[in-house]
Each structure stands twice: as C-alpha cells, then as structure tokens.
Design a protein around this nucleic acid. Structure first.
Lengths: 255, 255
DNA sequence: CGTCACTTTGAAAGCTTTCAATAGGAGTGG
DNA sequence: CCACTCCTATTGAAAGCTTTCAAAGTGACG
C-alpha cells in the first residue's frame, strides 16, 4: 500500500459482442449493417511501440481508437506514484469512449500496437447517424461497466490467489486457444491490475505451478492445466457465458 | 478476505450533472428540453422500506428506476457470501441502466426509498425519440464509468484510512451541507463498499475523531472538521470539480 | 425499561507487503 | 554465436496492516 515506484494502468478489454462481431465483416462492402469498427475503416493505421502512450490522464479526450493489434493498458496514478490499471484493451475493442470533458486515465501500449483513430466529435456524429450504431455504443458501454463491476468485486473481496486465478481465467475466456493463454503483460502490470505487488503475484503463480494447476510454456505463455480446479478457486463468476443467443435485433437501442 | 456472513452491495451515485439538473425543472411544463428524469413524470411513486430489494442479481433487468428519495445500494455477492457494494444510489440518480441481458447486481434500499419505474423497453424507446436524451444517457453512463474507475483505484491501491476518508469526502462532495455530511449506511455497508471489515472502518473513524479531523454529531451524521487535512489524506483526487462550465450544447451526442 | 442490532475495542493471527538478494531471459555487441 | 549487461521474475525472511475472534458499549425501538 506504500510503493511509489511504478507507473502505468490498463483497461480491461471486454469488447462488446456486437462490436467484436464486426471483425468478420468487410468494411468495404455496402453496409448491410455497419458496425462501430467500420467507422474507422478509412483511417490510416498507426503504430505504437511498447510503452508509448496514446492518451494521457488529464488530456482533453479528443481521440477514439479502434485497436487492430496489440494490447494496451489503461491506468490511473495517485500523486505518490501508486498505479492502478483499470483494464487491458485487446484488438477488437474501442478505446476512448466513456469519458467526457477530460481523460480520466492514461493509456499506453503493453506490446506493439496498431490502431486507427477518429476524433471524438467525428466518431460521435457518425454514430448519431445510425440508430444501430448507437445501440452498439450503448452495448459497449454496458459491457465495460459490467467488467468494471466485476473488477470491483475482485479488488474489494477476493484473496490474492483468487485474483490471480480470476485474471488468468479472464484472459482464457477472452482469447484462449485451448488451455493455453498468452499473457503479454509483465508481473508489474498484473500486480497493478489486481491490486497486489509483483512479489505476491509471483508467489501465487509459483504456488499454482507447484500444485499442477498451471504451467509455463514460455515467457508469456501459460497453460491452464486444470481449468475446473482453477474455476473453483476463482469463485466461478468470471468465466460464464451469456447463455442466451444474441437477442433479436430491435429498434435503435436494445430493449 | 475470508468472511462469509454479509450480504448486499451498492452502486455509487455519481449522477450525471446533466441529469441532476432536471430536478430544478418542472416535468409538467412544455418541454423546452426534457431531461431523462422527466420521462418518469407520469409514473406512480413507489415506496420501499429499508432492506427491500428492487433488483436481484440474475434477474432479467426489465426495470429502470428514477430515485426520488432515500438511498439504495447496489452490490454483487460471491458464492460464499462475501459482498462487494458497487455503489450507492442517491436521489437524482437513475438505477438500472447499464446492463444488458441479465442484471449483474442486486439493488436494495438502505433507507426508506421512493422511486418511479419504467420498463427498460419503454425507457429506451422514449430516449430514442430525443437526441438530447440520448446525449444525456450517454453522459450518465460515462459518469458512472468514471466513478467505477475511481473506485478501482481506491480498492486496488489505497490504504484503509485513505479509503474511509475518500468515502467521507465523496459524500461531502455529493451532498454535503457545510462541513456536515449524512452517512445513512451502516458500518457494514461502508466496509463492503470500501473492501474492508466493519472493525477496520470503525477503527479508522475512531482514529480520525481522535485526531480531530472529524467528529460525530449524530448517529449517522458526521462533521468534517478539517477538510484540508482530510483531502491530503485522501490523495486529492476525489473531490475535484470539473473546472469548466457545461460545454455549449451540441448536436445529439456531446462532441 | 428490556431486547436486539450495530458499533467500538482489544488482542492475536494471518495474509500481503516490504526489503534484500538470487535467478533467469532478452537484447546487444564483440 | 557467445559473452555481458540489464531488466524482470523468483525467493526468503521480517515487518506491517488488516482481519479474525471475542467481548463490552451504545443506541434504537417496542
């Protein structure tokens, strides 16, 4: 609770399903139903290398980014340097929505990143032209809100082990290939995201390995050997899918 | 990190300024500019007494509530009973927006509460009829998101004392009359909101009193005697106002 | 005025952090 | 391609803050 040496925060991906869906449709075709991401189609692709910042806390939040590749972290920092990573942003997600007059956090690249950007004004006015896009934006915000709530539960009431396991399972849920997951961020990033220290994260990981629940298959690659046991530890609330298929599309906002 | 005895969660108020504004305008007059709250004007006023639930975690989130009086708490509960209060809802705020298929939290009354309700479908279709209302809803969600981020910073990186002081200052910021604040919730609610135990909250309060920073003027009434010192403790990031006046109204969504 | 629920205190235990030092990997340059 | 350096991760041991367990106060309510 005392450290004053770290910097950087991340925002949890949690791409709205309706938004993620866009990835499988060509942004060039006549739009049978444009997605939020299609709005960025004409923009040039920009690259950022690990560590570079896209948004600074306190800035006028003028830009909105469509993340094409790489991982970003969104964070807030206390005056004395303590950092809290709000979430990590993955490809398929949109960064920069959800604040008003002033950016409330910093966002920088965890890995090399490719994005397309749109000014906030342009983005919003484009969204306004389509009830369907408005609905998608609304859904996106609701998803992010839901993720934020889950994180509050984690930070406020879960033990170190539960936090680490929940984190691993969340990554698995988001983009797991089989039982293996890619963990691009450092222990420090994990710690700042989970409200722990790097040492504690490391100890928990070691403990999980020793018990055979996970095992490292590379520097940033981890195999979740016993998903069931891991889910038991996490509390069974991170990895559940919405059981219902996407509801029938309705007018403008989802009802 | 172990307790298995409490139940209940709250959602941080954080009413969008644009929404709070509505309170000073008659919902009956021809609408020069309707506010989100005006949508509830025709609905009957319902009362709930302390402890009654308005929304259950897992329910189909069919209802949206305009809170007229009283305080609600929004919370999530782990399978073993650990509870995390997501936020407290105050009059002027709207409850129930921000989730999609299924309610992700429970909401119940901290004090006697008066609300008006609207089905989600009706609420959203009414909002869709007015670009201005859409803008307000968007702003509301952004404010709630911002509050959630602040809370994550608090839960992940602040000490017990900082959390308690931040909480008191947040209430003061929201609805402080002079240096006195009304704290309608119990120590257990505070603890579950701040990620602490009731004993720790109690100890921190006692410590603040002993140092002359606050003093109780009633069971649920506290005077913040030394605001400056309290702000220093909290880290100076909870109580800042947006320095800019509301930006000029623009098309539909705020740009 | 008695009961019940909530709050405050105290003391000990525990989990996470802090401090320190050792590994381990990645990248660079010879 | 290997050596060297630097940064990140892992471990240990001790300290610290918060929690747990218990018990005494306090106030609200009937």
């Amino acid at each position: 609770m005392r450290p004053v040496k770290q910097i950087g925060v991340v925002m949890y991906s949690q791409s709205a399903t309706s938004v993620a869906r866009s990835a499988i449709r060509s942004p060039i075709l006549a739009d049978p139903r444009p997605t939020l991401k299609d709005l960025f189609a004409g923009q040039p692709v920009e690259s950022f290398s690990a560590g570079e910042a896209l948004i600074w806390e306190g800035d006028q939040p003028g830009q909105i980014f469509d993340v094409l590749a790489g991982v970003l972290r969104v964070y807030k920092v206390l005056p004395d340097g303590r950092r809290a990573i709000i979430g990590f942003i993955y490809p398929g997600d949109v960064l920069g929505v959800s604040f008003r007059h002033r950016s409330l956090f910093t966002a920088d690249a965890v890995t090399a990143v490719k994005v397309r950007r749109l000014s906030r004004g342009r983005f919003l006015s484009l969204v306004n032209e389509s009830p369907d896009l408005q609905s998608q934006l609304f859904a996106l915000l609701c998803d992010k809100m839901s993720a934020a709530h889950d994180q509050m539960l984690l930070l406020g009431r879960k033990s170190a082990e539960e936090r680490v396991v929940s984190f691993l399972l969340a990554i698995h849920h988001k983009c797991g290939e089989g039982a293996e997951i890619e963990v691009p961020m450092s222990r420090l990033d994990m710690a700042d995201y989970l409200g722990l220290t790097i040492e504690t994260v490391s100890r928990m990981m070691t403990s999980l390995v020793r018990r055979g629940l996970i095992h490292a298959t590379g520097r940033h690659r981890i195999a979740l050997s016993k998903l069931g046991a891991l889910r038991d530890i996490a509390g069974r609330d991170e990895d559940e899918d919405d059981p219902r298929p996407a509801p029938a599309r309705r007018a403008v906002w989802p009802n």
